[in-house]
Amino acid sequence: MVQEDQVLDARGLNCPLPILRTKKALGELTSGQVLKIVATDPGAVKDFEAFSKQTKNPLLEHAEASGEFIFFIQKA
């Protein structure tokens, strides 16, 4: 299990807010640190994969539990 350094609660937010908040939160981390994001937007799954690929911040893990999508993104 990945250990996060910071958590971003993006529940209830819709596109593109989860991505924009994630970008901002990653800006406050240092390289190698991990951000955990909790979202409820079903579109977030594809969006976070795309965000990770394009910004080169690795998506370490993602999971779904009871309507919530959890992502662990490491700051490159």
């Binding site: 924009l20 965000f51 394009q54 910004t55």
Partner: peptide, 8 residues
């Protein structure tokens, strides 16, 4: 625009 900016 905001999303593209977030993507760099």
């Amino acid at each position: 625009a905001s999303t593209a900016a977030a993507l760099g």
